[in-house]
Design a protein around this nucleic acid. Sequence first.
DNA 1: AAACTATATCGTAATATTGCAATATTAAAT
DNA 2: ATTTAATATTGCAATATTACGATATAGTTT
Lengths: 108, 108
Amino acid sequence: MGATKTEHFTDYQNHIAILAKALGHPARIAIIEYLMRVETCICGDIVNELPLAQATVSQHLKELKNAGLIKGSIEGNTICYCIDEKSIEKLIRYFSQITLELKTKSCC
Amino acid sequence: MGATKTEHFTDYQNHIAILAKALGHPARIAIIEYLMRVETCICGDIVNELPLAQATVSQHLKELKNAGLIKGSIEGNTICYCIDEKSIEKLIRYFSQITLELKTKSCC
DNA sequence: AAACTATATCGTAATATTGCAATATTAAAT
DNA sequence: ATTTAATATTGCAATATTACGATATAGTTT
C-alpha cells in the first residue's frame, strides 16, 4: 500500500493528475512564475530567486521537466529552461471543459 | 526536513499550489469528472464508481473539500457533493495569465 | 591543465501521502 | 428501539516527497 493505483484510471486522468501534481508545490509555482516573468530563460538565477538549496531547486526543476511543464536546453555552461506552453494550454482546455459542462447543470 | 517550506512563498503561490496538489491524483480527477458528468450530486455512487475502498474515497473527498474544490452539504442520509466552480475558474484565470504573458516573450 | 561556474545526482533524514480494515457516527427505515 | 445505509474517522503499513550536504559532471576561463 501507499502507492497510487494509476493502472485503475485512464491515461488522460493520469496525465492531468501528473501535470497538476507537478504544480502542487509552491516552489514549483514560484519557478513557473519566474520563468514567465523573466525575459531570457537562463536558469542560473532560479537558485538565487528561491529560498531553497541548489540541490532542492534542481530536483524541483526535474519534476517540472518530467511532467512536461518546462523544457530545458543546454546552452553552453548554463541551461535554458522555459515553460512548455502546450502543457499549460492543456490544463486551460481541461478546466474550461469542466466549467462549460457545469453551466448545463442545475445542481448546487 | 521533509516538510514543505510554505512560509517562504506568497499566499497566492501557496493557494494555487494547494488547488493543484488536490488535483494531483488520478482518483481525485476521476471524482471531479464524475461530479461534472452526473446530474444530481449525491455521493453514494462515488464509492461504486471508483476502484478504491470506501475509506480511501472518503479521504480523497476530504482533500478536495479542504482545498476548496468541492462543496458538500448534508442531504439527510447522504451528502451532496459538487464542484466549487469558483476554484476551477481561479485556476483557469491563473493559467490563462501565464500563457498571455508568454505571448509577449520571444524566448524559446 | 587548473581553477571556476553551473547544474545534476546520491545518500539520507524528516515528513507526507496512499490505501485499507476496523470501527464510529448519524440519519432513515422498519 | 433496532436494524440498515451512508459516510467519516482511526490506526497502521507501504510508499513518496521534501530538503539538503556532499559529491559528481561538464563546460568556461585563465
